[in-house]
Structure formats: C-alpha cells, structure tokens
Nucleic acid binder design. Structure first.
Lengths: 386, 386
DNA sequence: TTGAAAGCGCTAACAT
DNA sequence: ATGTTAGCGCTTTCAA
C-alpha cells in the first residue's frame, strides 16, 4: 500500500512534511477527542499598581520605583511593597509601561524560516543577547517571500518594536528597508551583505572561494555550484559568484550553475542531467546544508556514491551535518553570533551608538562527503597528451 | 592541524555548533569592521490618531473606527481618513490599543528549542493559525530547563499575551501550569499529554507500540530504546513505557533502555557497551530523529552498518530524515498541526469555548534504516535446541 | 525618600 | 454616521 505524502493532509490543516517512505498499514489513527477539563478561564481582573499602592500604603509612583529603580526606595518601604505585590501575584503591566515610557523593550526579528536550523540558531543567539539587556524578541518568518517580508515588518512596526533584525531575499531595491526606516526604528540586516545598509554576515564570496580552493586542492577541476532559486536569496548569488571567480583564478573551468526549484530539496532529473556525460562534475558545492543533504540523497538514488563518485560540500555548518554518514563537509557560518551581534548593534544604536556593519569569520568543516577527485579516463588522456 | 570545536568560540560570544571535522588551514578569517553608514535613526515623533483626526477633519473615534470597523464609517469619510493616514505613514499604535481594549491580540509559545525542526514546524503552524485571527505569536525557548520554563511564562504573562501554548519537561507537579493559571490566561500543552490539563499531542505510548510492532514484524526480538535524559522530557518516558508494554504483549524480551546524556547526541561509549555481547539488540528505537541520526553516526563510527547490522527507527518525522542515506525510518508527528490546533483551542477559549484535549494521529514512515533482523548464530542455536 | 498630577495612544460607552 | 468623554496602567516630571 503506497501512499503519496507530499500532498496529503493529516487533518483539515495543510501539512506537507513528508516525501519519502511508505505508510505501514495499521498504524493510522483517528483524531481522538477527549472530553476534558474545560471552562473558559475565569479571570478576576488582575491587580494594578494602584491596588498595590493602596495596600502597601504608598503612592503608585513609589510602587513603580520599587520595580524600576529599587535603589531609590527606602529598603523598608521596598520590602513592604514587594511583599504586597508578591502576595497579590502582581507584576507590572508591560503594556501600560510601554505606552507611558514609549519603550516596549522588544526587538523584531524577520527570518526566512525557522525550519532551517541556521535561522533557529540565529534566533536563539538574538534572544539571548536581547535578554541580557532586558529585551524580548518577536520573531516572524517570511518563507523567502517578498510580500511576506513587508507584512512581517508592518506587523513588527505596529507592535512598536524598537529595532529590527531582518534577512531579506535581496537588499537592492527592496522597499522593506525603506519601510523600516520610515517606521523610525533602527535595523540591521542578518546574512545579507550590503554596501548601503548595516549588516552582520560572513563574507559569502570569500567563503565560497575557500570552498572552491579546498575542492581544487583535492584535485577537483570540474565543479558544479548548486543553489535554490537565486531570486529568493542573494546569498546564494554571492556564493555562486565567489565560486566562479575563485575557479577562474585557479585556472579551473567555469563552474556550472545548477538552480534547483527549492532551497531545501533537489530535483532528481536536474541532477541526473548534470551528472551525465564525460565532463560531469566531480564535486558539487551546495549553497546550504539542507540542499547538500538533498543532493547527496538524490545522487545516491541515481546510483552515485558520495564521496566515491561525487564530492559534495554544503554551506552553513548545521549540527546535523555531523551526524550524517559520511559527515557533511560544509562552510560554516556563526549563526548564533550573527543573531547576537545584530541585536548587539541594535541595542547599541538605541543608546546612540552608530550602526556599523560587521563581517564574521567563516570556517570550513571537513567532512566525509568530500574526497580526492577520482582520476577519470578523460583526464588521463589529457595528461598523456600534455 | 586539528582543532577541537566543541569548546571553541569564534568570537566573544559563546558558540557550540561543531563537533566533527578538522579545519582546513588558511580558511580562518578575522572579524572585519567595515566603517559604515551609521547615525542613530532620527525619529520625528510618529503621528497619532489625533493628528490624523485633525487633518482629516473628523474625531479621533472616527479614525479608530476607520481602522477597526470600517463598515461603520461613511465610505467618503473612510477614504479621506485612509488617504490622510497613508500620507502620514500612520498605523495605529498597538500599545495604546492594547491598553485601552485590554487585548494584546498576541499568544505566547514556549518550546524547548527551535533548533529541532519539530518545534520550528510547530511554531510555523501556530503562527499561521494565529495570524488567521489577527493574532501574533511571541515564542520563547527553554532548552528543556524547568527554571527557564518559569522565566519564559513570566515574560509572556508580563507581555500580557492572551493565551499560552507550552511544552514542558513534565506535566506532573510542574508549577509552571499553575503559574499560567494564576496569570489568568488560558493555556494548552503541546506535545505533552495529561489527564489534568488540556493538551494537543499524539498518543505517544501507542505510537511507540506501533514502532515496536513494525520492528517485530521484521523479525526483531531484541530491541533497545534510546532516549535523552528522561528528566527533561516526559514524552521520551511515555514512548519508552509504550515500547516496553508492546514488547511484553508481543512476547519479546523487555527492551533495554539506553539513556543518552543529551536529546540530540549519542554517547559512543554508551552505545558501544549496548552493542556488545551476543544478546545485543538488532534494532534501536530512538525517541527523536536527531538522536536517531546521532545513533546511526555513532554506530557507523563503531563499525556497525545501518541497517545491515542494526536497524534504527526515529521519532518525529523531521524533513531531513528523507534526505539521509539510507532514509530514516521514523514515527512522524503532525507538528505543524500540533501548533495550529493548540492556537485554535486558545482562540476558541478566548471566545468562550471549552478547552478540549486533542490527540492527533501519528504515522509510521518506512525508511532504509530499518531492515529485517539478521539471523544470528545465537538465535540459530536457540532454534536448533527448540 | 516620597507624593501629586498629568498624559502616553487608543477605544468603548454614550450621546447626537 | 459621527462626536464627546473618560480612562486603560503606568511613568515621569515637579514639588515636598
């Protein structure tokens, strides 16, 4: 019993997680509704700062100080206020506070997707750095879609975030950046590079160059660069360009560009065509690790073994690359730091510091998916002739 | 030149992404500071509803209606207001709106980590469902840590989210749930199951049972269950228990439990010990896919080939399982739906509907990491004797 | 060290 | 269909 998962929905909400594998009959289950503890929560209106002030026999201003500038409050008074507040389960209402102070103490983060661990790590780095300064992070995903980028930014501006970290498809002629500026909040690009706008990123072209150099050092001459749609990621374009330039400098033939329909999956037919013929590449540089894993799986399905028949190198250095067999070679980005530094810059900007772009170091992680180039008949002939 | 990555930091902020692989010399890069477009954003105080009202020659209430109940406003007036607002780049301030209306139109989401794509998908499902009702989602991660669970909930309550979706380490005697209740907002557990609190989850025990049944059908009798620390995940415990019960019913020896120090990595020594001896397991059921990948990698490093020497089945059905070679067998959860339904329940509760637990279907995804059990000498002897 | 008073931006109730 | 008024919870002068 074969079931095609790609377009199957488990429930009434769309779900598209699965491509491979059959469903073993008998493991289907039906939705189960458990009659259950219910009842809309009955809410006694929560205490406000005035209630606490009354009970603690102080003015509301003093209660406010107790939470925000406790050092200005008499220790005895402070203790009394905090005790009363604690008993009442009181916590200052950030909405009131934000409105009055004009500060939400929240930063916005706009990322293509969190399903790619690269961006999830960026988020965690951003959240950690923001929290150090008492800031929260509100994150939204765009799915590499320019319209959703605009919507996400609108939403965050409506929420009155005080700064925005954003990864966009392209930095040139992208109205999103003006949109943020018009919102009056500072922003920093993450992963994108730009001569115009502040950013935190690796040097994508140079990182790609280092990948090509590493492959060339292993004897690879015919190298392909695999990316998702360039329209959806200027990083992929920079990596491709960097790879081409590096190949030229090293005297290698110009790498072929294989553009897959998605950033996270490999089209088997496209790959089969690329691997066909005598001048087929011996190595592939993929613009991200999810794509690299997909390419390896597709190549395997086509009967090519990695790295024996084909070397594959990814980009990003996601943790699960270390758990692939063989381990995935990859050019790693410091994603956590990218998120953290981007927030660091924003928080600095809120204190009046200038926004300065920052280029973080990349690192090549050797892995079992890359090996020395096989010596092929065609090349042997060439050598004999020379 | 070998470099240990595990404890290396690229920059002044901690980073711990890499375990495998050497660094190819010469690819190091230094932080680069690009002198850059800077200047703290100069913000002319943004227009308020009163400015718009004045310019459009209407009362502030009418401007408010134009944005919130446009059908109540005369089309001409509406057009004028919207034009004025657009020219001024005006958007209603949600902070003011939230304070006055008592509704932030925001839900909170508390998850162990987003680096596991399972939870990232849950977030995306939650965000999509919330957005359908004009709600935003504020997400925080806890790293499977109970103290951070408390902090996360505090933060969200301070932000006055109107409901909370939360995955906790354990549901029993966990003060977090009372904490939320005390905050006066509805909540739903995600991934956790509970007889006491509303939840959205798969039936973990039954899913585990189906895994064991599938393995048994392939001839496996000696099966091990691999989990991370049970203290950090009651799901792992439920899956273990379900597997044990299933084994008993099927007449199999009780599965051994292998508890790894992390939910996302496999200790090679522990695994080596488990694989040692004549009665070593022929199959391993891992409580999540990241762990399964790690186990496969570790087994491979120990010279055991999957699935020839050892079958491995994961849990979660994360997308990259389809790109492993061989593909990862896994018991899949509908993560997107878990997030979406949890928000659906909360949004319903905000409209007065009861909170009802919901059990969503699991699905076994066959994969190349599971194969028929090998016929081993010890078993042959047994058979001869019988 | 504490208090009084004003108001952040918006919307809900009531009035017209 | 639109206006008037009051106040959500808090912080921030300014004054004591």
């Amino acid at each position: 019993m074969y079931v095609q998962h790609a377009k199957t929905s488990w429930t009434d909400i769309e779900l598209s997680s699965f491509r491979h594998g059959d469903v073993i009959p008998g493991t289907y289950d039906e939705n189960v509704f458990t009659a259950h503890v219910s009842g809309p929560t009955l809410t006694s209106p929560r205490a406000s700062i005035l209630d606490i002030a009354r009970t603690a026999q102080v003015s509301p201003a003093t209660v406010s100080r107790a939470f925000n500038q406790p050092q200005l409050v008499n220790p005895h008074t402070l203790a009394r206020i905090l005790a009363v507040a604690h008993d009442a389960g009181f916590r200052p209402n950030r909405v009131g506070s934000s409105l009055r102070s004009g500060s939400t103490r929240t930063l916005g983060l706009v990322l293509p997707t969190l399903r790619n661990p690269v961006f999830a790590e960026c988020f965690e780095g951003a959240e950690a750095r923001a929290r150090d300064d008492g800031y929260s992070v509100m994150v939204t995903t765009t799915g590499y879609d320019r319209q959703r980028e605009r919507d996400a930014v609108s939403l965050l501006l409506d929420h009155r975030v005080e700064g925005i970290v954003v990864t966009v498809t392209h930095t040139v002629r992208n109205p999103v950046l003006e949109q943020i500026a018009a919102g009056g909040v500072p922003y920093v690009l993450a992963y994108n590079e730009s001569a115009t706008y502040p950013y935190v990123s690796v040097d994508n072209a140079r990182a790609a160059k280092d990948v090509i150099a590493a492959l060339a050092a292993l004897g690879h001459r015919v190298i392909a660069v695999v990316t998702g749609p360039l329209a959806a990621s200027d990083r992929a374009g920079l990596r491709l360009a960097g790879a081409c330039r590096a190949a030229q400098r090293l005297g290698l033939p110009a790498p072929r560009h294989i553009e897959m329909p998605l950033h996270t999956d490999a089209c088997r037919t496209t790959l089969a065509n690329a691997l066909d013929g005598a001048a087929a590449p011996t190595a592939m540089f993929c613009s991200n690790d999810l794509l690299a894993a997909a390419v390896i799986a597709a190549a395997s399905a086509l009967g090519r073994q990695v790295p024996r028949d084909l070397s594959v190198c990814g980009f990003d250095g996601v943790p699960f690359g270390a758990h692939m067999v063989p381990t995935l070679a990859s050019m790693a980005q410091p994603s956590r730091d990218i998120g953290a530094f981007a927030c660091d810059l924003l928080l600095g900007a809120l204190m009046g510091a200038p926004l300065v772009s920052r280029c973080l170091p990349h690192r090549f992680i050797a892995g079992g998916t890359v090996a020395a180039a096989p010596i092929r008949p065609a090349l042997l002939v060439e050598r004999r002739q020379s």
